[in-house]
Nucleic acid binder design. Sequence first.
DNA 1: TTCGTTCAACGAACACTGTTCGATAGTAGG
DNA 2: CCTACTATCGAACAGTGTTCGTTGAACGAA
Lengths: 243, 243
Amino acid sequence: MCAMSEIPAPPWRAPRRSVSARKPLSRDTIVDAALALLDREGLDAVSMRRVAEELNTGAASLYAHVANKEELLELAYDRVLGEIELPEPDPARWREQLLEIARASYRVLGAHSDIARVSLASVPTGPNALRMGEAMLGVLISGGVPPQQAAWAVDRIALYLSADAYEGSLYQARQRASGKPVDEFVADYFGQVHDYYRTLPTGRFPYLNKYADVLVQGDGEVRFEFGLELIINGLARYLPGGG
Amino acid sequence: MCAMSEIPAPPWRAPRRSVSARKPLSRDTIVDAALALLDREGLDAVSMRRVAEELNTGAASLYAHVANKEELLELAYDRVLGEIELPEPDPARWREQLLEIARASYRVLGAHSDIARVSLASVPTGPNALRMGEAMLGVLISGGVPPQQAAWAVDRIALYLSADAYEGSLYQARQRASGKPVDEFVADYFGQVHDYYRTLPTGRFPYLNKYADVLVQGDGEVRFEFGLELIINGLARYLPGGG
DNA sequence: TTCGTTCAACGAACACTGTTCGATAGTAGG
DNA sequence: CCTACTATCGAACAGTGTTCGTTGAACGAA
């Protein structure tokens, strides 16, 4: 309003050398902070303000290094993908190698649980997503799958990996919210579903009713492996000698 | 504060019979309004305030019929699932029938585009989700797939249907945001991806570089069908005469 | 008919969100 | 030394889901 607003701060030296002096605040440190927060408190806790708080600054400061929240999450996601180890294609072992990649992905995405909720929400185009696509395509093609089928298979497998991780992160969030330990939560949940299926009217839901037992068999990892098996077995049909 | 707060409203009759008199406001009408808004403007436009506005009321009024936004969206999702026609299991035609169900799901979820973004975000337990599970399980088991494999397959196929629809809705949202007609958008996008792959360093990305052509072949529907084929072919292995 | 109870409706408010703007401070270059 | 620049960041905007306390109308009992 008036020029008085420029009264200088009392000159007891400069009380703060640069407000925090911790880290110089860069794309990388921001992604680091976001990932740390995400691992610690889950995706819902990741807001621009919280990430900034983690770095002893304000939300607005982040926008100098990152276009928006979406870009930040994509950067974090690609960073996580970087943890996945990828094999050199070996024609004789294409099945095993595909399984290796898929399992590594399952493990890494599971370790950073909630990050999986980002993967499906955006089209991954980061360097590490490319690395994975390259690896899978290489394994399949050098294993003898015709190029077109290999290309589409990479697309579908990537979708499967993301979707399963996504679903897994939802269960994990629910478990976390319930406060129960994971074993108890899973047991309770499957028990409830089982009982629910058993109480369904036999007339309209004969199969769900009868096969309630097998429907609740197997945890997330078993189901993940089963789906992988389906895909890989389905792929074998396209091999020169596998039709 | 004081008893004066009870001064009566001036008695020009009752100026409004019941504020809107349009619809009695029930779970169903709320779900209707939410779906209409969703189809018209997309999921991002669906807020409690907007839905309430659609019904000439305030957001708070919705909470008398619906626990929260999540429940509202789940109800809307299950309503959409109800549009999917399901066949009676015919043992001789299990493959075709599974394809029919999957394609019907693809069509219906695609028609209500953005609703797919809800499917993966929650564990579907509504009556129509049950109906679909029952139908798929029936088709597979009466087709000769062993119960345990059939049960897990239903789980994986449901995941695939949701995931593909989810991904599709993201592309649709991007296309809508771009303002371009769908053909042009797809052509541009695939063209860009193609060029991008071609500019990748051949040393680190030999396969992506070499097979850029086949990688961008085929639209969403072709890829959807390919993934279905993988799964169904993979399932055939578990048939008594198919291993 | 009149009273009392019940409950849907709803305006206002709370605590958030992502993002933008304008002022500020610290530094590098001429 | 002064200028130009750029990273920083407090404040504000427009929106979100949800809760609270008050309304007002309908309904059963007296």
